[in-house]
Simulated scan of single mutants.
Amino acid sequence: MNYILVGIVLGLVQGISEWLPISSKTQVLIASTFLLGLPFSLAYSFGLFMEIGTIFAAVIYFRREIVRLFKAMVGRGTALDLKLLKFVIIITVITGMVGVPLYLFVIDLVTSAVVGIPMTILGIILILDGVVIYLTRRRYVPRRGLEELGWRDMVIIGLAQGLAALPGVSRSGMTTSAMILLGVKPEEAFRLSFISLIPAALGAIGVTVLFSKAEVVQAVHLINVTGLAVSMIVATGISLVLIDALLKFARSGKVLILVFTLGLLAILSGLLSTVFGG
């Protein structure tokens, strides 16, 4: 087996799918099932573990925001820094409360249908969101920023992110769409979603190692240390490019195009996961 080639493919899959509403863990699940012959439940655990590369990218890209978070922790940050810290803490706690039980419940139930159906449903919901936004476009103008988000908003965003523990449900798709529907500016929604990935993904890796250590070790052994290192490097590089591109697209203010595009991507990914994962 060409471990470097496998690492490149898995890195590309992880780096591209993490930031789009097509569930990175699911795409890695499908890819590793084909490339490494992993059973679905083992590949699902491996998909969560593979988020290491995208964490590196998020830390690099949002290094200034991370510095601001640390300043807020030691009492040296601005009011907006404290609000960002509050946002990250609240949605991370809510995500853990929802996501960990869901992960433990579904880990042995993962099949191609379980993977594909939720993703397709998410895509349909995003399309319906776009229709609602279009019909109410004269009244709906997303202008809210971080400073205008309250406890209720943060809890809703945390719940949306926690549901992404389900196979086939995209974390970025859930959090970004939830914030846009709450009236958050698209660029701010993407930025906050990408920042919140860091603690959420670290928690997902921790839970995966804690409860599925044997499966992760087996998957890592199959891909080889060299292949794993290559996948992390590729995932980090492609993630940096995509983060920047998506933030620029969101900054354009084309909310309808953004929502409909995300919805269609999710539906297509869900259908392909069901067909080719079967």
Rank of each mutant, 00 (worst) to 15 (best):
V6G: 06
G7H: 05
L10F: 01
E18S: 02
P21V: 11
I22C: 03
I22E: 04
S23M: 05
Q27Y: 04
V28L: 02
L29I: 10
L29K: 06
I30W: 04
F34G: 11
P39M: 14
S45M: 02
M50H: 05
T54G: 01
T54Y: 00
F56V: 09
A57N: 01
V59I: 13
V59F: 08
Y61S: 09
Y61W: 11
Y61L: 06
E65I: 10
I66W: 12
K71Y: 13
A72Q: 04
T78K: 12
L80E: 15
L84G: 06
F87A: 07
V88N: 02
I91L: 14
I91D: 04
M97E: 06
V98R: 13
Y103W: 10
I107C: 07
V114N: 02
I117W: 08
I117A: 08
P118H: 02
I121D: 03
I124V: 15
I124C: 09
L126F: 13
I127Y: 05
D129Y: 12
G130D: 09
I133K: 11
R138G: 13
E148P: 02
W151R: 14
D153E: 12
L159M: 13
Q161E: 12
G162F: 08
G162Q: 06
L166S: 08
P167F: 07
G168D: 07
S172E: 03
L182R: 13
E188M: 14
S196V: 08
I198Y: 06
G206V: 07
V207D: 02
V209H: 04
K213E: 11
A214H: 11
V216Y: 03
V216K: 01
V225C: 03
V225F: 14
G227H: 01
G227M: 05
L228R: 01
I233V: 14
V234R: 01
A235V: 00
G237S: 06
V241Y: 05
L242E: 02
I243P: 01
L246D: 02
K248N: 10
K248C: 09
F249K: 13
F249H: 08
R251W: 03
G253Y: 10
L256P: 06
V259M: 12
F260S: 07
L262T: 11
L268D: 05
G270M: 09
L272T: 09
